[in-house]
């Protein structure tokens, strides 16, 4: 650490210990480093426009990552989040552009939001039942919808790109509240609710207990199956919401691209935020921090003209670093 004081035996006691500091605050340090880098290198970084772009992009990652964090907290994983996004995103325009939706705009918009969310919830229920009742390994159970979910979405839209012009629906992705993107506020609101759920409610306590030691949780009367189904349903509905937001941002629904590779971003954000893959920990605001880091890295590379493919490698390195810090923390 310090090179001035190398006398043996006279171990400097005042030296700042980087190891433990990085382990507990690694995410914040990474964020600071990326911000600093951008301020120095990236042209026009300190502009409101940059903030808007990043908030509107990060919100979807953050929303899905929070759901993923809950699933991971029970020791599971959900690979189907991207496919659920595609499915709910494909359904919305079909509903508000239908004859019924155009005849009753208010009802049409409501249905275009509620029905896809119900479908997403059902997808989560399906995942949950496979994992909890049929004891299928989470990675395999959610692989089913990972593959078929996007397929269903493409069948619904005949594989076409659906473009539309519907200001009310687009508010989800382009609206502003107090000058900042609507979906950013939405993500914060969801985070606050989930934080309350995890720290104050019996459901939250059981989620952590199931992830920490499933046998012990069950023998102490914890409703293990219901808890597992619950987290997959929450993850499903949040993914559905993120799918709607993406469609609203683009004013177009592309079932082939919506949510593509989102499962990786969400898992990465959750892990960078401090979730343990073996379960037992659910850092909700950590997931948001993780999502911000992932998004900023993407943005940094893009803004500096680095190719997309390289961005993927950068993402992999971040995950590696986060997992390494976790292992060091566990000893």
């Amino acid at each position: 650490m310090s090179t001035q004081d190398t006398e043996l035996g006279a171990r400097p006691t005042k030296t700042f210990e980087w190891g433990p500091f990085l382990r507990t605050n690694g995410g914040l340090v990474a964020l600071a480093v990326i911000l600093l880098f951008n301020i120095i290198v990236t042209p026009n970084f300190l502009q409101m426009q940059t903030l808007f772009v990043n908030i509107s992009q990060v919100a979807t990652i953050a929303i899905v990552a929070m759901g993923m964090t809950l699933v991971i907290a029970t020791g599971g994983i959900d690979l189907s989040v991207g496919a659920i996004m595609a499915l709910s995103g494909a359904m919305a325009p079909l509903i508000f552009m239908s004859e019924f939706g155009q005849a009753n705009p208010a009802l049409g918009i409501t249905a275009a939001i509620v029905v896809p969310l119900i479908a997403a919830l059902a997808c989560g229920l399906f995942n949950g039942i496979l994992v909890a009742n049929l004891k299928v390994q989470p990675i395999i159970a959610t692989l089913i919808l990972f593959i078929s979910g996007r397929g269903i979405a493409q069948v619904l839209t005949n594989g076409n790109l659906q473009t539309f012009s519907n200001p009310s629906f687009s508010y989800l992705g382009t609206g502003k509240v107090l000058g900042l993107p609507f979906q950013g506020w939405l993500a914060i609101a969801i985070a606050c609710v989930l934080f309350w759920v995890m720290s104050r409610t019996i459901f939250g306590r059981y989620v952590l207990a199931v992830g920490g030691n499933e046998r012990a949780a069950e023998l102490s009367g914890g409703p293990v199956k219901r808890v597992k189904i619950g987290v997959y349903m929450i993850c499903g509905v949040l993914s559905g919401l993120a799918g709607l937001i993406v469609v609203a941002i683009n004013s177009a629904s592309d079932a082939a691209r919506n949510g593509n590779l989102m499962e990786l971003d969400a898992i990465a954000a959750a892990v960078v935020g401090g979730a343990l893959l073996q379960g037992g920990r659910a850092p909700i605001f950590g997931a948001i921090l993780g999502a911000v880091i992932i998004q900023l890295v993407k943005y940094t590379l893009l803004a500096n003209g680095v190719e997309d493919e390289v961005a993927l490698i950068a993402k992999a390195i971040i995950i590696l670093a986060a997992v390494y810090l976790q292992m060091a923390r566990k000893e």
């Binding site: 019996i202 459901f203 059981y206 920490g212 030691n213 949780a217 914890g222």
Partner: peptide, 28 residues
């Protein structure tokens, strides 16, 4: 294997079985 939840606190481990009775409207 069947008793403690290692990463949880003494408090959370101690009240695990009692939890339903400590809860009103889902809130502990």
């Amino acid at each position: 294997a069947e008793g403690i939840i290692p990463d949880m606190s003494v408090r959370e481990n101690l009240t695990l079985a009692l939890l339903p009775k400590l809860t009103k409207n889902g809130q502990i």
